[in-house]
């Protein structure tokens, strides 16, 4: 019971989801050629994941650095920002993250995964995890069809990932620099905000262990 860090479990689930989400966004928004993507299965639905080692490493390193902050509930949001050729933001996918109030109550359910059993033989933890998986699946599906409601981006776009912290970013700088050759810097104001943005809500996930 004491060995399991619950924040770590939530961060693992969330970072795994964010990894899939980033790949899907890059595929759907055609940031990279579709030839580098392969169909895989995640959360029981088909997803498109890059098979380009350098890009995959970049995404993994980014999320690996963010994870310690998520564990400590210090991330307010993670943003996948699509930038045009001149590096101006043209589109943002914003993942707002908060810890639901029931988190501490639910601790025991995950620590003792097979107890307590309900009458139909399904443990609370099974149904909890199944519920989380359903939410993650629904969110990935929403991302997979979001191009239907978005305009095309200009050619030659690239992307970056922004991490909005709850406290001033300076306080979290050391915590996020967990990979030696993958330094982080403060984002400039013009990189964070867009002029006259239009907001399109995609999906809200609320479960006992995470809210996005």
């Amino acid at each position: 019971r004491q060995d399991l860090n619950f924040g770590q479990v939530v961060a693992d689930v969330l970072c795994e989801f964010l990894e899939v989400a980033v790949h899907m966004i890059l595929y759907v928004r055609e940031v990279y050629p579709i030839g580098i993507f392969q169909k895989r299965k995640k959360y029981n639905v088909p997803v498109q994941m890059s098979c380009h080692p350098e890009l995959n490493q970049y995404i993994q390193d980014t999320l690996h650095c963010i994870k310690p902050l998520i564990e400590k509930n210090e991330v307010d949001r993670v943003v996948v920002m699509i930038l045009d050729k001149e590096h101006h933001p043209v589109e943002r996918f914003v993942f707002e993250i908060s810890q639901p109030p029931l988190l501490s109550v639910r601790l025991n359910v995950l620590v003792f995964p097979k107890l307590p059993f309900t009458l139909d033989g399904v443990s609370d933890s099974d149904s909890l995890l199944s519920h989380v998986e359903q939410l993650l699946r629904a969110s990935i599906l929403k991302i997979s069809v979001c191009d239907a409601i978005l305009e095309s981006n200009p050619p030659g776009c690239t992307f970056t990932v922004l991490v909005h912290t709850r406290d001033a970013a300076t306080r979290n700088m050391e915590k996020i620099q967990v990979i030696k050759d993958f330094p982080w810097i403060h984002a400039d104001e013009q990189e964070v905000n867009m002029r006259e943005p239009r907001l399109i809500p995609l999906k809200t996930m609320t479960s006992d262990i995470l809210k996005v």
Binding site: H52, E54, D61, T62, D76, F159, A168, P183, H186, L199
Partner: peptide
């Protein structure tokens, strides 16, 4: 959605591989 200022935002110093770099790698293969 714009309520967070730049003072609260971090980003990786390095950029991901560009589309051109990736296309070049594909052509190499």
């Amino acid at each position: 959605i714009n309520r967070t200022s730049g003072a609260h935002v971090l980003k990786p110093l390095m950029s991901p591989p560009s589309r051109e770099e990736i296309v070049a790698t594909l052509l190499d293969h």
